[in-house]
C-alpha cells in the first residue's frame, strides 16, 4: 500500500543573522533520519515513541503536509514526494490526516456540517445538495445521528468524543485510501476511548482503509494496531506484530518504554529498571546507537557503530547490536 524508503527530514535550526553570515555550517534537527518501512493494504500500523522521536513528522511526510528532505514514499505505485500541482491536489483526496486536538482542529465559528462539507467544496465535488447529502451520510456513519440534528451545531455544543467523530467524518468524506491519525484518543476521556477506537475499526472495514496510527500511548495502541513500530530520535528501533511487541519486546528501549507504563493493578510487580535521563536533542544525536547513553545493556560496540534495522525473527525487525549477529 505505502512503502517508505530511506526517508529523511531535516529541519534547519533558526540561527542569528550574524551566525548565518559568518558560518557555512548549518545545524539541523534530524527529525526523521533515514527510515524505511511498509504498510500493507488494510493494515493499521502503529507508530509509537516519546515526544521528539519524529513519529509525527513521519505522519506528516506520508500525506505530503511537509516535503521530505530526501527518500521516497511509494503510494499506489508512484513516488508521492515528487508530485506537484493538480496531481497533488487529487492525491490529497486519497491521503488524509487527523490531528490530536479535535477542539483546535475545528473552526469555532463554523457549523460542523459546513466544516465537513468544506472538504468537498475545496475539491469541487458535487452540487450543493449532493454535498449536503454526503455530509449527512458521513455524520451518520461516525455515529452522529440523526445527522440533521447535528449538521447545524457548532463545535462548542459537542462533547470531546463527538468532536473527534466530526474530525473523522471530515477526513473520510473524500474517500481516502490511506489515513494518518495522530493521537486520535489522547484528548478523549478514558471512558469513551474504546468507543472511538472501535469506530475507527468499523470505518476501516466499511471504507477499506489503511491507517498509520501515531501514538505515545502503548497501552492503548495494542487495541487497534496490527503492527507497531517504535521510534527514537528519528530512527526505527523495532518493528513487529503488536503481539510480539507486547509479549516479546527485544530492543532495550522498547522494554524500558513498556516497563514505564503505569499498570492499573496495585498488586503488579514493580517494573524493572526504568531508563534514566531524558530523550536528548535531535540536533546532535549521540553517536553510534542513539540510545546507548541511557541503555542498561550498552556495551563497547554501541557508541561506535549505528545498528541497522535487521530481521531477527519472523516479521520482527530490531536495530540493536545485541541482536546483530
Amino acid at each position: 500500500m505505502i512503502e517508505v524508503k530511506n526517508l529523511v527530514k531535516y529541519f534547519p535550526v533558526q540561527k542569528g543573522f550574524m551566525d548565518a553570515l559568518f558560518t557555512r555550517e548549518k545545524d539541523f534537527v534530524k527529525a526523521v533520519d533515514d527510515v524505511s518501512f511498509k504498510i500493507e493494504k488494510g493494515e493499521i500500523f502503529g507508530l509509537a515513541g516519546e515526544s521528539g522521536s519524529g513519529k509525527t513528522t513521519v505522519g506528516r511526510l506520508c500525506v505530503r503536509l511537509t516535503p521530505a528532505t530526501s527518500g521516497e514514499i511509494i503510494f499506489e505505485g508512484q513516488d508521492i514526494t515528487k508530485i506537484k500541482g493538480k496531481q497533488l491536489r487529487l492525491l490529497k483526496r486519497r491521503l488524509q490526516i487527523t490531528f490530536q486536538d479535535p477542539t483546535s482542529s475545528l473552526n469555532p465559528r463554523m457549523t460542523i456540517g459546513n466544516a465537513i462539507a468544506d472538504a468537498l467544496r475545496l475539491q469541487n465535488i458535487g452540487t450543493r445538495t449532493e454535498q449536503r447529502k454526503q455530509t449527512e451520510d458521513a455524520l451518520e456513519r461516525v455515529g452522529l445521528s440523526p445527522a440533521s440534528a447535528f449538521y447545524d451545531r457548532y463545535p462548542h455544543q459537542l462533547s470531546g468524543g463527538q468532536r473527534q467523530r466530526v474530525i473523522f467524518a471530515r477526513a473520510f468524506i473524500l474517500r481516502p485510501a490511506f489515513v494518518v491519525t495522530d493521537e486520535p484518543v489522547a484528548m478523549v476521556d478514558v471512558s469513551i476511548r474504546a468507543q472511538i477506537l472501535n469506530l475507527m475499526r468499523d470505518l476501516q472495514k466499511e471504507l477499506d482503509l489503511t491507517y498509520l496510527y501515531i501514538t505515545h500511548d502503548l497501552a492503548t495502541a495494542r487495541h487497534i494496531c496490527d503492527r507497531i513500530g517504535i521510534m527514537y530520535l528519528g530512527k526505527f528501533f523495532e518493528i513487529a506484530d503488536s503481539r510480539a511487541i507486547y509479549e516479546n519486546a527485544l530492543h532495550p528501549y522498547t522494554v524500558g518504554l513498556m516497563s514505564a507504563i503505569p499498570v492499573p493493578d496495585p498488586k503488579a510487580e514493580k517494573s524493572e529498571a526504568i531508563p534514566t535521563g531524558e530523550i536528548p536533542s535531535p540536533i546532535n544525536p549521540p553517536p553510534g546507537c542513539r540510545f546507548h547513553p541511557r541503555c542498561p545493556r550498552a556495551f563497547e560496540r554501541c557508541p561506535k557503530e549505528e545498528p541497522e534495522l535487521l530481521l531477527v525473527e519472523k516479521n520482527h525487525w530490531v536495530a540493536c547490536h545485541l541482536y546483530s549477529d
Partner: peptide, 23 residues
C-alpha cells in the same frame, strides 16, 4: 466498575476495553 473496564493494561494485552455510552 465501568471506568476500570475501560482502562487499558499493558500487562494484559488481551483485555477487551469497554466504554461508557453517552456523556
Amino acid at each position: 466498575q465501568c471506568l476500570l473496564k475501560a482502562v487499558p493494561d499493558v500487562r494484559k494485552p488481551d483485555k477487551t476495553l469497554a466504554w461508557i455510552a453517552g456523556a
